[in-house]
Simulated scan of single mutants.
Amino acid sequence: MPDSAADIILFDGVCNLCHGFVQFVIGQDPAGRFRFAALQSPAAQALLAAQGLAPAALPASDPDSVLLLSGGRLYSHSTAVLRIAHGLGGGWRLAAVGWVLPRPWRDALYRFVARHRYRWFGRQESCMLPSPALRSRFL
């Protein structure tokens, strides 16, 4: 089972934008606070089931391309992204300015980008495979 102190980022494993986001977080998180699992993986599906979400609850077309499991709670949409940015610390905490926008506005922007992510950034045929050095950070 995953380290309870680590926050887990669940991401769309075939989305190029999501891959870029994961690589960005890894680069900004040398302490390894965050761990990762592709939404399509058995590990992610088990984590979602433990949160009371059946695999069918998140269809492949769903715009929830990034979810955050932190402190036993599951965060989605813009809330997940803002919490991840805050967790990176340093200058990324300035992303907290995003909290001043009403959640429906933030989430509408998130859903717009998520809905077009494959068209704008492309997709891969299979989930990314982490390098041996990063394998321990993936579930």
Results as ranks from 00 to 15, higher is better:
45 Q>V: 03
78 S>M: 00
130 P>V: 00
71 G>F: 08
24 F>K: 12
100 V>K: 02
107 D>E: 09
14 V>E: 02
52 G>D: 05
98 G>V: 07
20 G>R: 15
96 A>K: 01
102 P>K: 12
56 A>P: 10
76 S>Y: 09
83 R>H: 13
41 S>V: 08
134 L>P: 04
72 G>E: 09
132 P>W: 03
73 R>G: 06
63 P>M: 01
11 F>G: 02
21 F>P: 06
37 A>W: 01
139 L>S: 04
100 V>L: 15
105 W>L: 15
43 A>C: 09
73 R>M: 13
8 I>R: 14
27 G>A: 13
112 F>A: 14
43 A>P: 08
128 M>K: 05
39 L>Y: 00
126 S>A: 15
99 W>H: 09
41 S>H: 10
44 A>Q: 01
33 R>W: 09
69 L>C: 04
12 D>Q: 00
84 I>C: 04
103 R>I: 09
134 L>Q: 14
128 M>I: 08
119 R>Q: 13
50 A>Y: 10
89 G>D: 02
88 L>R: 09
110 Y>C: 03
138 F>W: 11
32 G>M: 12
137 R>V: 11
59 P>N: 11
29 D>K: 05
59 P>R: 08
66 V>G: 03
25 V>G: 02
98 G>I: 02
69 L>K: 07
133 A>N: 07
36 F>D: 08
73 R>K: 15
51 Q>W: 04
20 G>K: 10
42 P>L: 01
102 P>F: 06
139 L>Y: 10
68 L>T: 05
82 L>N: 04
79 T>H: 10
84 I>S: 05
100 V>T: 11
45 Q>Y: 01
103 R>F: 11
108 A>I: 02
112 F>G: 09
55 P>H: 05
72 G>H: 08
19 H>T: 05
60 A>F: 06
2 P>S: 14
56 A>E: 15
82 L>G: 07
29 D>I: 12
113 V>W: 03
120 W>C: 07
3 D>V: 06
81 V>Q: 01
26 I>F: 11
101 L>H: 14
22 V>F: 05
20 G>A: 11
41 S>K: 06
128 M>L: 10
115 R>D: 06
97 V>L: 14
14 V>I: 14
50 A>G: 15
109 L>N: 05
97 V>A: 13
54 A>M: 09
64 D>R: 09
77 H>I: 05
3 D>N: 15
130 P>M: 02
132 P>K: 07
51 Q>P: 11
18 C>W: 05
139 L>H: 07
135 R>M: 11
90 G>I: 13
40 Q>C: 01
45 Q>I: 08
55 P>E: 05
77 H>R: 15
101 L>M: 15
40 Q>E: 08
